[in-house]
Simulated scan of single mutants.
Amino acid sequence: MPNRVLDHARIPELPNPYFGKVRDCYDLPDNRRILITTDRISAFDRILAAIPFKGQVLTQMARFWFENTDDICPNHVLDYPDPNVVIGKKLEILPVEIVVRGYLAGTTSTSILTRYKKGERVMYGHEFPDGLRDNAKLAEPIITPTTKAFDGGHDEPLTADEILSRGLLSQEQWQTVSTAALALFKRGQEMVARQGFILVDTKYEFGIDADGTILLADEIHTPDSSRFWLAD
């Protein structure tokens, strides 16, 4: 049986490679970028394995969501020449990941449940009351931004004030991405609820194209970037 696992996509003829935990990316002419989603799977900042067809599933799930949210926020996608491949606009990726949470959940060091159980009540610029139960629904979705770690680094928690004071984003950029993220999350929650799921939390990445427009990048509402629960 032929090998059906795409564990890497190394193309030495293409310039400016970037090998992420899941995607192998290169520059193309005319301010374009090719993103090849491999079958690698990662968790807790580690590549764990490669699963047949995982890259195709991930790419096509992201495609579904990009096409169902471009009325809220434009995205980087130009074409899908292959089930594993996206041709997108070349972007300057913003150095902040926009994480939106609707529930007190998570297991990593940056999750609000982990920090809440350690006794923290002020996190990411938000105040939390005493007495919340694990996985409780928040009064409303909140943004818990982190640094955008490259080359396998670890993301670090941020507040909106820190983002602005450190010059990571301008006031206008922060307003744009935070407003878009909450609207995207709302759309995602509404759509998956009709299928019996809960979108618990997710992350969004944004970048700036050659014209200075902020675009949604990378992926959206996939199991690689989001937590889902069965509604029942």
Rank of each mutant, 00 (worst) to 15 (best):
N31G: 08
R33K: 08
E156Y: 03
K21Q: 06
D161I: 12
V200P: 08
T114M: 06
T144L: 04
C73T: 13
D232K: 05
K203W: 11
E205I: 14
I34E: 03
Y18S: 13
P29K: 00
A105W: 15
E67S: 03
P29E: 11
A49V: 12
S170A: 06
I163S: 04
T110E: 12
N135K: 06
D134W: 12
I72W: 08
A210W: 10
P95L: 04
P141H: 00
L215T: 07
H8D: 11
V86K: 00
I220F: 02
Q189I: 13
P12F: 11
K203N: 03
L14P: 05
V99I: 15
L48F: 02
G20S: 05
L168C: 08
I208S: 00
R187Q: 07
F197T: 12
Q189D: 08
I47V: 15
D7T: 11
I93L: 12
E140F: 03
V192L: 07
L164C: 09
Y116F: 14
L168A: 10
T37G: 01
I163D: 09
S109W: 07
F197S: 10
K118L: 15
M61Q: 09
F44G: 00
T202E: 09
D224K: 01
D151M: 13
D79L: 12
F197I: 15
D30Y: 08
Q171A: 11
I72T: 10
L230Q: 06
T144V: 10
I220N: 03
I72F: 08
